[in-house]
Amino acid sequence: MLCLYMPETGMLPPSPHSNYYNAFNSFVMKRYFPALCFIALSAIVTSCSKDNIEPAPVAIPHQKIADGFAIGAGVKVELYARKALSTGYNTVYFALYDSISKAPIEKAQLSMLPMMDMGTMKHSAPAEQPGTAAKDRLFTGALVFTMPSGEMGSWTVEVNITNGTKQGKLILPVTIANAPAARLKSFVSKVDNAKFIVAYIEPSAPKVGVNDMEIAIFRSKSMMEFPADSSLSVALTPEMPTMGHGSPNNVDPVHITKGHYKGKVNFTMTGLWYLNLDFKAGAAISNDNTFFEVNF
């Protein structure tokens, strides 16, 4: 309105104290005063409530797997995962609460040890330890189960917690289902006879198009030691076994951090795909007959 008016009168733009400015200001105030009052009021109300009322606990968007108390640490431990645990790579989340006040704990020293008890023998599995700080109240780590629970044996996850000065331990029994398609492969390197475990992480929701590809590689040093490995180079060749064709423009996974290799896999149609992976140590072929199935 001002713009239209100015050329007519030939006046300079109005100063903030001019009549135009005041007129405009009073117009705004008259028109929007009730709304402004409401906003101010509600701001006061909400700030008050923050001080006085205990917030409703934030729902954890994952499936609860197990819980229990780490007695010495005075901590209630809840174990979550995106879905029921199965063989292969499982991202897991721990929520910790003070066992008396129920207040969430955001800082703690947390370590976990998966154990398979097969009666005559016990062995562990690769694990990625959660950090010391929670994000959105969750401590995030990963467990790579190498076999399903069953007659052969049963799995537990031993959790050690240092909460300030208090320390405690908890053993959570877990049931590991067999993943519908193998999500874990192992091979013995042709180069040095080292044993490697390869876990499939992405694509978890495959689609036709470009997909993020992620695997994690662990070296199987002993029954109890599975350090992440970054020494290999990986070549990815997708293939449709029923059609005998591949797909173009894939990106070989390269090591990013902690044994995780990331690349891109392209699917040109739905159906059953093999993701063939060739592993090299330097120029020497370590293994060339590993593949994961993706059926979508």
Binding site: M240, T242, M243, T268, T270, G271, L272, N295, F296
Partner: peptide, 15 residues
């Protein structure tokens, strides 16, 4: 689109 059918696998579908 094209959909191919092979027993034992998901239908193969593409645009």
């Amino acid at each position: 689109s094209m959909t191919m059918y092979q027993e034992g696998t998901s239908p193969m579908y593409m645009l």
